[in-house]
Design a protein around this nucleic acid. Sequence first.
DNA 1: ACTATAATTCGAAATACTTCGAAATATCGA
DNA 2: TCGATATTTCGAAGTATTTCGAATTATAGT
Lengths: 108, 108
Amino acid sequence: MKYDPVEIFKALSNPSRLEILKFIYESGFTGTLEGGSMCCEQCSCMGDVVGKFNLAPSTISHHAKELVRCGLVRMERDGQYMRLLPNPEALEAAAEFMDKVVDSTKGK
Amino acid sequence: MKYDPVEIFKALSNPSRLEILKFIYESGFTGTLEGGSMCCEQCSCMGDVVGKFNLAPSTISHHAKELVRCGLVRMERDGQYMRLLPNPEALEAAAEFMDKVVDSTKGK
DNA sequence: ACTATAATTCGAAATACTTCGAAATATCGA
DNA sequence: TCGATATTTCGAAGTATTTCGAATTATAGT
């Protein structure tokens, strides 16, 4: 298996981290970030997240690393900036895992 | 909202608890429990879970309570036994939440 | 009422998580 | 190269989680 459901659920189980994930996903690809991103139109960078949430930069950095570790987010350097990119494949994999558990109880 | 995604993800984020959940869901409604349940054909009870996993009864009891707290499982007393019943609605709600996050990144 | 079985509560130990601030590292622009 | 900005690493404090065993509560059967 490419993604570990437990690791993904762990990443999603912290309220701050879940909000950060939502922010990254909403900003990603669609460029809906209000006021514009520091780094690009189509994604958010570390600093965008720091500006959005009431958490220390080191804390944001740590949460981002967790999101990357389990595959929910990808990161790439863009000069000084670190771009945070959604990886919906991982979220879909976790949702699929849940659907399978649901199916297992419905007699399938 | 009827179910809190963060609470559900927290419940799913522990390996033991996730296995217990899967066991409850597989046993529930379909009666596929090998060797039969202590309490009934169509579900598992606390003792079934204790027999299946290498964890102290108090630990199983604690995990079950967490699963009930977030809505993933229901519990009802049957004499000495405690029946553990899947509540797929909660799991479906969490999967739907995830799908919404995925959609938010794909331009809606 | 007593005993056995099932499950829960309680208290404690070990571990993990969340968050911060300070210091370190990376990159850009002048 | 220097100073400014962006991000990460490190160490520490407080909090939460996981697990256990012992004691307790609930119920069934005799």
